[in-house]
Design a protein around this nucleic acid. Structure first.
Lengths: 245, 245
DNA sequence: TGGACAAATCTTGCATACAAGACTGGAAAG
DNA sequence: CTTTCCAGTCTTGTATGCAAGATTTGTCCA
């Protein structure tokens, strides 16, 4: 994503910037979104920031605590289950009804898988998180239904927040292999098989969550006080979103 | 729905009022939503009206034409196909994974079907439109996934707009029988059959659309100048939403 | 009579101002 | 030393004001 502070304050760029920050895991669930700070950051008035927040709230991506502030959503364990349930249903149906892949589709998917491989090799976890979610959105794009694409885009954003809250361990390789299997099935002209694999894939990912643990209210404090293990990476994306409530 | 002009200006009541008006077909696609009029109607300032519009825009229920105004969405024929495609996928998956009906669920569904019958008998088309959409939302509620319920709520609202734009003839009885069949299959403990019936039902409804005809830009003017055939009904719901652009 | 131009009006886009609730820090009392 | 209360500060909630673009209406000219 481009540098926020220099980007022109185009319409809906605020929404996009925040969603992008979530999709690439540069912004944590529960992070405070201060209206004034965002306004100065985007060189607009609070009015437009608030409008963006309203839109994002309608998409369950941020929540408002009255007279206290806006926060990136922190899906509950129950909500997490529902989001995965919804994804299973949507992606199953999507893949099952998938038309035969065009040459361009195949190339795009292979390109994507290649990027996943590179991110794994480089150990670039932020990029990986982004790619892992994007894979499913690309499938929706190929399926050619923009309505479901929008639905999946929001579900993916929420999924990433869920991962950040509950993921005990991230089996990047396993997920990548799941994606490969889905692509292979699609190429073989077996959408039913691809759909079944998608369910299996989502099951595996959900399996990797620890939905019993309550979100740690001290998480961001803990992170801040710990020696910065990924200093090189995180300093690259110096987002001014504060995580401290 | 309660009378708009006397309802307290609670939070998000504006959103709900407009969505309700759409769900009960008391407001036409393409209808202008004047900020000032809505503000005075709800006894609030334009600020809150605009916030509501932003939320509804994020849900594809209203659109904004820059510096011209807000309008209830007029889904294109292509969008209509995508909405139905999305509904097929979501509802198929939803019903397929439906748990066994509890006694309360059964009662609620039968109650709903009974209301449909009454509306048909009474020839109350507005109420029928509302009930026809509500049936599918209730299924999502029984399925117990609030995420998909929200998705279906918005898809239903868009479906109603589509019907108002493209429906050549409304086979109320056919739709009702489709609903009955679905309920019967669910009661028989055959969610797969219910899912298949839902697809068939949606196919039938989409079949009843004439997606070739372009929306008539003079439709509302035409309506206004024609002798009011349903004067008794439409005068009951004297919504101040203007349909004239 | 028809068309083009221009003024007037209306409506939204955006910023700003003020009010009200929530939080913080410190002082005072037990 | 702990707890409670209160003032100060910060942040959001809401209204309002002004500017800019769009539409409409009325007039003038060919």
């Amino acid at each position: 994503m481009q540098d926020l502070s220099t980007s022109p304050p185009q319409l809906q760029s605020i929404d996009k910037a925040i969603v992008d920050a979530i999709l690439s895991a540069r912004i944590q669930p529960g992070a405070r979104l201060n209206e004034n700070q965002l306004a100065t950051l985007f060189s607009v008035s609070r009015t437009r920031v608030r409008e963006a927040m309203m839109r994002l709230e309608a998409r369950c991506i941020v929540t408002v605590s009255p007279r206290r502030g806006w926060f990136v959503a922190e899906p509950s364990a129950e909500e997490a289950r529902h989001v995965y349930g919804a994804r299973r249903i949507v992606e199953y149906g999507l893949l099952r009804s998938m038309p035969a892949l065009s040459e361009a589709d195949r190339a795009a998917l292979h390109q994507h898988l290649e990027e996943e491989r590179q991110a794994i090799a480089a150990g670039d976890r932020q990029r990986l998180t982004c790619l892992m979610g994007d894979f499913h959105i690309r499938l929706a794009e190929i399926a050619g239904n923009p309505v479901l694409r929008e639905v999946l885009r929001d579900l993916t954003a929420r999924t990433i927040l869920i991962s950040l809250l509950y993921q005990s361990e991230f089996h990047a390789l396993q997920s990548h292999e799941g994606h490969c299997a889905i692509v292979t099935a699609l190429e073989a002209g077996e959408p039913e098989a691809a759909a079944a694999l998608a369910i299996q894939h989502l099951d595996e990912v959900e399996e990797g969550l620890d939905l019993t643990r309550r979100p740690d209210p001290l998480a961001d404090l803990r992170r801040s006080l710990q020696p910065d293990l990924e200093a090189g990476l995180s300093s690259l994306s110096s987002m001014p979103f504060t995580n401290h409530r």
